[in-house]
Design a binder for these strands. Structure first.
Lengths: 148, 148
DNA sequence: GTATATGCAAAGGGTTTGCACGGTT
DNA sequence: AACCGTGCAAACCCTTTGCATATAC
């Protein structure tokens, strides 16, 4: 668990609650989980927690910089803990698997966008779509072509 | 209008209808439009057209390769015509503006992902989030930080 | 004690679906 | 004439909101 998460919340005037602790733990455990999935994980410990609390809590945790989310296609966004090493999400359009790669691979790309277009990229928020190594090889049956 | 759009549809066993023509025209006119926006554009010509028809039509047009969509954050996806020159979407998280840049700027990045991770990127589907040139400069009032 | 957080239920967007009718082939 | 495509309405999923109660401070 991110140390000092309590301080992060308190600094900004938010209170420490069991729900907030559990949601943060769930996000860190699950990695790339949707709100519903986070709820399910939280409910393994505390049955009474409500979906709307999860939504509100994720908003708070994101606000104080403890978690972020990324959009990986049609469905709900996935949340993950903010870590030291920023990463990029590779989303396989066939099997929906999300792979994380270090952001360094995009350094030149990001610099180029800033230099040529003045665009300041938030690299951790990028979702790169395509086919992962395994799906690429057994490709070409239509199956998950409408996932995205 | 893309020439031979009729052939594209017929080849695959789809029929030619006024709705399909109008939706395709709207997509090409609007560039990066949501289904609702496309409906509005279509209804300037044909009032009776229904939203569900727009959805079904977009699916068909995407299926035959005449349009694609990209996810640019919270809201609905935006559709655009498939063109010769593939492009990348730069989405400003503050003003929501979508800028298109030629895919060449990402060539090295894409190659790197393929070589190092075996990941075959669908570059036209990438949404790059961040701040556009103008928003970057008058930055730092909290305003659109929850848009994405 | 007071203000914030929560649970619940209802409302709200965006999208999909079932069905009968109408239009294309 | 056969079948696909459309309009309409209802259903669906995901998310937000209003309000009364509970809880952290």
């Amino acid at each position: 668990m991110t140390e000092d998460w309590e301080a992060r919340l308190r600094e900004r005037g938010f209170r420490i609650t069991p729900q907030r602790q559990l949601v943060l733990e769930a996000v860190e455990t699950l990695r790339h989980a949707t709100p519903e999935e986070i709820l399910a994980e939280v409910q393994r410990t505390a049955t009474g927690v409500n979906l709307s609390t999860v939504y509100r809590t994720l908003e708070v945790l994101e606000d104080v910089g403890l978690v972020t989310h990324a959009h990986i296609g049609h469905g709900p966004p996935t949340y993950h803990a903010v870590e030291e090493h920023v990463h990029i999400h590779l989303v396989c359009d066939r099997c929906k698997k999300v792979e994380s790669v270090p952001s360094e691979v995009a350094e030149d790309f990001v610099r180029c966008l800033e230099d040529q277009y003045g665009f300041r990229t938030d690299i951790s928020h990028v979702s790169v779509h395509g086919l992962c190594d395994s799906c690429k090889n057994r490709a070409f049956e239509p199956e998950a072509d409408d996932l995205l």
